[in-house]
Nucleic acid binder design. Structure first.
Lengths: 187, 187
DNA sequence: TCGGTTCGATACCGATCGGTTCATATACGC
DNA sequence: GCGTATATGAACCGATCGGTATCGAACCGA
């Protein structure tokens, strides 16, 4: 395995473990045991566990927003339909057996200091996500795009939290119906 | 300080520390240092840290739902207005400088196993909260009360997550406007 | 083939984790 | 006033935490 491959393998495994057990609960020893990669190698790629977490979040952010963008663009050309398609992509995520709630919200909860790099990375993701949704809303020529984008994000986040604690059955579809009501007759 | 007082003091302090730093990150040693109560005494009241967490969550659940019920009943007699009042109570919570996101969602994230007592306590709270909202929706004679209650819960949870990561300014009001749209013309 | 350099596995570091043991202090029944 | 039961604090437990030092192996151009 090459250098860069090892780094990616570490990150992917870390993401899996962090999602499954949480950030504090996932020890560095566990990660090196799971990957078979030496601790020294890990610390050559990442200065600290915090650094690793930030890198993992950045990777998840990139993947998640890419997948969403690709899905939405493939779903439809109609701007309003594209907005609703975000909830179909959400449904795919919730159905994943590895789904355990939003990694960014969890990270923000475990590293709550506003100055904490982990928290800032989580906030960055949400900002970028919000900006993307707002972009979709503007494309649909909906009034008050900022407010509507916030409301759509809330439906996303709410569906994720609901699914995490109470179960995923039909949650995304229910959120999608709410979104239809929010963006309908509002141009 | 009497026995029962010590137990309450332990629980209240634990709740504060758990909210501020997370569950794994808050050590038992830190809690006993903060309260000045001996570790032996703590373990006489609670069998384990997990037991303490469950008790803390149960206490927060009780307090949160009581406060919401009292606020809503004082706000109005009109069922629809009462539904919207839940977002005003939410606004109060978000404004609290100690606010750090939903303690139950955080607990569910850190103790993700569905069989984990901590997770089950978190789920119990959400179930009771959902049941209360559904009760309000039924009182307002709104169609599809189960679905609408789910959507309102999603707005609550979404507003909480949004506020936790991106800031609290005006979030509850924006969620309230979305709720108005969801329950309007739907009887 | 050699000398030098980078790399990785192991053993180890002090600190802290959740939890327990035990000896002492205190309160209370007789 | 005395003996007993209970509550307490402090010292301690093995395990694990994030992070390092050491030392041998693999690899490099010459």
């Amino acid at each position: 395995m090459r250098r860069a491959e090892k780094k990616d393998f570490l990150l992917d495994t870390a993401i899996r473990l962090f999602n499954r057990h949480g950030y504090h609960a996932t020890g560095v020893d566990r990660l090196i045991e799971e990957t078979g990669i030496a601790k020294t190698t890990l610390y050559r790629h990442f200065a600290s566990k915090e650094d690793l977490i930030v890198a993992a979040l950045a990777r998840v952010d990139e993947q998640a927003r890419d997948e969403m963008r690709i899905f939405v663009e493939a779903a439809s050309e109609d701007p309003s339909t594209r907005i609703l398609a975000t909830f179909d992509q959400l449904a795919l995520w919730l159905k994943d057996p590895e789904f355990k709630g939003c990694p960014f919200v969890a990270a923000a909860a475990e590293y709550g200091g506003a100055a904490d790099p982990v928290f800032q990375q989580a906030r960055l993701h949400k900002r970028l996500y919000l900006a993307y949704i707002e972009e979709l809303v503007r494309a649909a020529r909906i009034k008050d795009p900022k407010v509507v984008a916030q409301q759509l994000i809330m439906l996303h986040e709410g569906a994720i939290a609901y699914a995490q604690v109470l179960g995923t059955d039909g949650v995304a579809a229910v959120a999608k119906h709410a979104a239809e009501r929010l963006i309908g007759e509002r141009k």
